[in-house]
């Protein structure tokens, strides 16, 4: 009922509509596109190194003869997966930590928020960069975990402050006076009533994670070869940007489009889920 109204509002919002269309197209490109390309991403064409876009190699080739089209789409798949997984983990973590801190208060609140404060003192980029040498040879999923573990703090603070006001709301008091235990109240009354915020935040976190991954990979602190992501491709391309711009422009352009479309959806969701906000 409510979700239908939300969806209707979302589709009526032009920003969100363009965002949704763009995202669907990008997803289709990433997952269906490779079937139409003439080359696999592992193929190396020893006849053409660093050749510009052509009928054969639609987006050109790299210095080792990889097809940029195939490699870029492969990288995009990885970026998308990373983005969604990180958003899921970090928003879930933020919801639990924030709601627990806000609802229980006292020492639980102090400990959890002190932890969040501590993690905020150093930019996550810096911490993950320092840890990254250990990840050489490890699964890229560890990288997802790292990104998630260092990106929940701000959301959890927002969740906490909203929980503080929800906690005093009368329907929560009613549940408490019924003798319902705290963790049940959090799961049954608090988190569902924060779902708007959490959905919006999870959306924004997807794009944040995609950028974060790319940023770390740009310096080689992220996804390690032989895996590719948009970040590793942009890093490789940026060094040759003046002579061989296609190496840089295709992955960078797709990254920007991906992030933009997700941000548009997130902003549209904010309007659709929170009719009170005038934006």
């Amino acid at each position: 009922m409510r979700s239908k109204v939300t969806l209707a509002r979302l589709v009526r919002n032009p920003q969100a509509r363009y965002g949704l269309i763009a995202l669907v197209l990008l997803l289709a490109l990433a997952y269906v596109g490779p079937f139409f390309g003439p080359y696999d991403w592992t193929d190396k064409d020893f006849m053409s190194f660093l050749s510009p876009p052509s009928a054969d190699h639609w987006w050109g080739t790299t210095q080792i003869g990889q097809d940029v089209y195939a490699v870029t789409l492969r990288g995009m798949q990885k970026s998308i997966i990373i983005g969604f997984l990180v958003a899921l983990f970090s928003t879930g973590l933020a919801a639990l930590v924030g709601a627990a801190a806000g609802y229980f208060g006292g020492w639980v609140d102090r400990v959890l928020m002190w932890g969040a404060d501590l993690l905020l003192v150093l930019p996550s980029f810096l911490i993950i960069a320092i840890v990254s040498p250990r990840l050489k040879g490890a699964s890229w999923l560890w990288f997802v975990v790292l990104l998630a573990v260092f990106s929940w703090m701000i959301t959890s603070r927002v969740v906490r402050s909203m929980t503080l006001s929800l906690r005093e709301r009368e329907f929560v008091l009613a549940a408490r006076y019924m003798g319902i235990p705290g963790w049940k109240i959090i799961l049954r009354h608090i988190v569902p009533n924060l779902s708007s915020l959490l959905i919006i935040d999870a959306t924004i976190n997807v794009s944040g994670a995609i950028i974060g991954e790319a940023a770390l990979s740009f310096f080689g602190f992220g996804i390690q070869p032989p895996d590719v992501s948009l970040g590793t491709l942009i890093a490789a391309g940026s060094g040759k940007v003046t002579g061989y711009p296609w190496l840089f422009l295709f992955p960078a352009g797709l990254l920007v489009l991906l992030v933009l479309s997700i941000n548009l959806i997130g902003d549209g969701l904010r309007d659709a889920l929170d009719p009170g906000s005038n934006k």
Binding site: A214, S238, F248, A252, V256, L260, N263, D267
Partner: peptide, 21 residues
């Protein structure tokens, strides 16, 4: 603002050098 916020610094900076060149 939306477009700019979707462009990571490293892409923006690289683009700026490209333009400057």
């Amino acid at each position: 603002a939306f477009v700019i916020m979707a462009i990571p610094v490293f892409v923006l900076a690289t683009m700026l050098t490209l333009v400057a060149v």
